[in-house]
């Protein structure tokens, strides 16, 4: 069953005399439960694609459907609720709220929905990510890697159907990266989450069951693999 589909997705940056075509008529369908890796050279449009899929930016042309809903038809309010419940987005820059503690940052999407987080799951997530003893710190008191792990915890806690991650292990050492990949794989398998990650890391890409490579805003290759 398909969870995500985009048609003729195009994103142009800049004004008339200085245009950058970050994405050029991208067509893509992703099935529920897939674990997709997006690779490509720097500037090839990976982050742009992710932002469009996550509904935080709008395409210049083309459409994105998530569970058959056209994102462009959403009102700002339902778009916000969509971001909160349907997708977990892990940004290349961590995008934490500087005035909230790590704990409240992680719980933020839940708090916005006035829901009580599942404390057992919360414990498990922060333990795995190794930020349990940082829960009462502020983001500015964390290292880059710790901030990244906080951002990951935040997107995992709501157990969204779709998880989008922009280089989630970019700032982490080898063993840390390993653990995070294991964690993502686990939730992909157990919760049936669909996961799309951007990575430069060959090894990590090999963990995925589908690898999409972008080149100058176009899909250069799209291969499915058996694990």
């Amino acid at each position: 069953m398909e969870i995500l589909r985009c048609e003729g997705l195009t994103k142009v940056y800049g004004n008339a005399d200085n245009q950058v075509k970050a994405l050029d008529h991208v067509n893509l369908t992703i099935e529920k439960g897939e674990f997709v890796a997006v690779a490509g050279a720097s500037g090839s449009g990976k982050s742009t694609l992710l932002h469009l899929l996550g509904g935080v930016d709008y395409p210049t042309e083309g459409k994105v459907f998530v569970e058959n809903t056209d994102l462009s038809t959403l009102t700002p309010t339902s778009a916000a609720i969509f971001r909160r419940r349907k997708v977990g987005l892990i940004y290349q820059f961590y995008n934490l709220i500087p005035t909230l503690t790590v704990e409240r940052n992680i719980m933020m999407p839940m708090l916005l929905d006035k829901k009580k987080p599942d404390m057992e799951f919360f414990d498990q997530v922060v333990a795995t990510l190794g930020i349990r003893d940082k829960l009462n710190s502020l983001p500015s008191q964390l290292s880059g890697g710790q901030q990244q792990r906080t951002a990951i915890a935040r997107s995992l806690l709501y157990r969204p159907a779709l998880l989008l991650a922009d280089e989630p292990t970019g700032n982490l050492d080898h063993s840390n990266s390993r653990e995070i990949i294991e964690m993502l794989k686990l939730s992909n398998k157990n919760l049936g989450q669909t996961i799309i990650i951007i990575t430069h890391d060959e090894k990590m890409a090999l963990e995925a069951n589908r690898i999409i490579t972008l080149e100058d805003g176009r899909i250069a290759s799209d291969e499915s693999r058996r694990r």
Partner: peptide, 12 residues
């Protein structure tokens, strides 16, 4: 923008 990206609604 940060609040919005995490899912705070315009009403929020």
């Amino acid at each position: 923008a940060r609040y919005l990206s995490i899912g705070l609604t315009p009403q929020g």
